[in-house]
Every structure is written in structure tokens, then in C-alpha cells.
Design a protein around this nucleic acid. Structure first.
Lengths: 201, 201
DNA sequence: ACCTGGCCATGACACCTGTCACGGCCCCGA
DNA sequence: TCGGGGCCGTGACAGGTGTCATGGCCAGGT
């Protein structure tokens, strides 16, 4: 009996996944949480062996959770289950200590197998996704450029970004210009979209 | 036995919802599709009585599907099941003939009840969502303003938008200016975000 | 000691954007 | 018949944006 923990911010999806996995005779969902910062406590109390983690959750990112799980509960395996197959996410997930990476597009019947493989100590990564991840390569953005671009994601004007980052407007525009160049974009909005889609933010 | 059709672009979510609903003794999932434009055929062939529709799908929107179902298969009830509780979506869903509107945040146990209510001919709408929908009111945007704003969503420059819409740049800027004024935004990026969040696009 | 590269900043320039005033064309309701 | 309002366009202006050159500071590697 493999003991599972589910972390996803959408209650309906969480419950549905639980129903799906409980159909398997060798799997048992022992805990469900809707926030990233509730995973560690729940994992400790439930004695979960494998954690299915969504990436975009309130509190903590699934990637951050995977990192903390590795540090504090090294016996627990993390399996990232996310909507977005952004290339950069795969690399970051593996760096964070995740044992697997699955997108929500994959057929339902394959999920249970992924869980079993991860539990057995294997690494599970969507093959097409792994290829994309290698193709795209690592992020060319510096830390500051990524930070500025994150602030520019919603289309804020330079003045707002500068205040938020405690920088001068000129510096912000320089970072944005560099990011535009590195992403091959024409405007900062496009640069932000590209970097976001690649998982560089 | 209530016959259900599931439409959601994420295979994993689709399969998980099927597992969840099949647990109920009076419900039966008779068809699953991953695209909006496959729903009608599938509904006809499977003889589904209730269709669970995600809004954002390739091919056709869940809202558009609801409209066509009402026109061509009036006996079939539509239940919108979506991630985003945008106020404008609720109104548009009901106008399109949907019998219910549920967000993916709702507890899993309530979904089966929503299906039964819809099948019984009742309307099901998340109460807090209904309140928000009334609060926000209808879209103040004209058709063209909404179209231009849709094209501006990704941060394209005015020249690109103008080409895409077959308009002069001046006209595009006028429409954008009007939209910025009506949304109370400061930039077109913010206006696009606001309108999108309200379900006006 | 030297050079490279990230980071911060300034100033100047060309260009893009947001706003406003204005005019014209339609359709619809009073 | 006469507005009113949506729609399209022009022109002009102030301010925001993207680019470039330049300079200083600091950490790291040769």
C-alpha cells in the first residue's frame, strides 16, 4: 500500500484525483491539502510516502515544497503534477529534488504508474517535455533581469516597477532592454510572456 | 441513471472527474472529449443527458458549446465547470442557455449534487459567484473595444493590433483610450487585465 | 595586478502611447 | 425629421518607452 498526499489548490480536481487514485488497490490517499505551506505538516502527520504537488498554489510553490521535503523528510518522494509544461519548470523541479514531473494533459491511466515508479525510486519525466527542456536550454537572464521581468508581467509602467524594486527608472529600463534582447522580443510585454512561458520567472 | 458527458482539455482532470462521478450509483459517464468542437457529435452518439463543460478549450468555448447544445439538442442540460469565476462568465453562461455554473474550487462532494439538480431541471449557480456577478454589472465595453482589447491582451504594439483588426493606428488608439477610461485603468495592459478578469472579453 | 561581467545610474535620442478635439459615416429610436 | 451613439479616421501634443554610450562599484578568475 503506497501512501499518497495530494496538494492542489482546486478542491474539485483534488477530490477527483483522490477518487481516481483510490480506485487502484495498491494506492491510498492519506492526506489532501489546498495550500503549499500546509504540505510539510500534513506529510509528517499522515506518514505519506509520495506527494503529488501542483506548482501554482497559494502559500508555497510546488517547487519550493519539493525542496523543503527533500531537506526535512528525505524519505518522501515528490511528484510534480502541473498544468503547464514550461521547459524551465522541469529543470527546476529536478534541481529541487522532485522525483517526477507530469503534466495534466497525460492520460489518467498513466498517473498511477507514474506514482508507482516514483515510489520505487525511479525518475519519471514526460519524454516530449524532457526534450523541450533540453532544447530551450537554461535561462539566459540574470537574477535582476528575471526579477524586473516578473514585475513587468502585468504590464505595469516603468515608474511602478522602479518603486517596487527600489531602483531608478533608468536602471529598470536597462534591465528590460537587456531582457528584450535576450528573449528576442520587441516589447517588454512580449519578453515577459516569452520568459514566463519558458519557466524563466 | 443519469448519463453524463465530460468536456475538459486536460486529460488527467477529465479522467479524474470521471472516476469521481462514477462512484455515485445514480451517475454514469458515457462520453469524454478534450475539445469543444467534439461535444455535439459525442452528445448525439452517447445520448448524454447532462454535459459538464470547461470554458477554456481548443475548438470551441464551453459557452459557445452550451449555446449550440440549446439550439440543436434542447433536451440536454449544460453545466459549466471552470477554473475561473469571472463575473461576466456567469451571465454569459446563463444567457447561452447553461443550466448551471460551478467553479473548480468547490468541494468534490458537491459536484454530484449539482449534476442531479441540473438534471432535475433546476438552475445551479455558486451563490457567492452570483453575488459578484450582480455587483460587477454588465460589460461597459462596445464590441469593437472588446475586440481591440482582446488583441492587446498579449502586449502587442498598436501597429500589430491595427494590422490584425484592419484598422488605422489612430482608431486603435482611440478604442484603447476609451477602454482604459471605462475600466479605470492607467495603461492598456492594465485595462486588458481588468476586462479579462471580469470576463468581458 | 588585471580583466571580465553583473549591477546601478545618468543623459540623450528616436519612437511609441495615451489623450483630446475634430469630422464624417451609419443605424436606430424619439 | 432630428438627435444620439457607435464606429472610423486625422492631426497634434505631452509623456512614456526602448536604445545606446558612458561611468562607477564590486566580486570572481587568470
Amino acid at each position: 500500500m503506497i501512501r499518497l498526499l495530494l496538494a492542489d489548490d482546486q478542491a474539485l480536481v483534488r477530490g477527483a484525483l483522490a477518487a481516481l487514485l483510490d480506485l487502484e488497490t495498491d494506492l491510498e490517499v492519506v492526506a489532501q491539502v489546498g495550500r503549499g505551506d500546509e504540505v510539510l505538516d500534513a506529510a509528517r502527520q499522515s506518514g505519506a510516502e509520495v506527494c503529488l504537488l501542483d506548482i501554482e498554489m497559494p502559500g508555497l510553490t510546488g517547487l519550493e515544497v519539493a525542496e523543503r521535503l527533500r531537506a526535512e523528510l528525505p524519505a518522501v518522494r515528490s511528484l510534480i503534477v502541473t498544468t503547464f509544461g514550461r521547459p524551465g519548470y522541469v529543470r527546476r523541479a529536478l534541481d529541487a529534488g522532485a522525483a517526477g514531473f507530469v503534466v495534466k494533459d497525460t492520460p489518467a491511466r498513466e498517473l498511477a504508474d507514474a506514482v508507482r515508479r516514483v515510489h520505487a525510486g525511479l525518475r519519471v519525466v514526460d519524454p516530449t517535455l524532457a526534450a523541450e527542456s533540453l532544447m530551450a536550454g537554461p535561462s539566459p537572464l540574470t537574477a535582476r533581469e528575471a526579477e524586473i521581468l516578473r514585475l513587468a508581467l502585468d504590464g505595469s509602467p516603468v515608474a511602478t516597477i522602479a518603486r517596487a524594486a527600489h531602483l531608478s527608472q533608468g536602471t529598470v529600463r536597462n534591465h528590460l532592454s537587456a531582457a528584450i534582447g535576450k528573449t528576442g522580443a520587441a516589447t517588454r510585454a512580449e519578453a515577459a510572456r516569452i520568459a514566463h512561458a519558458r519557466g524563466w520567472l
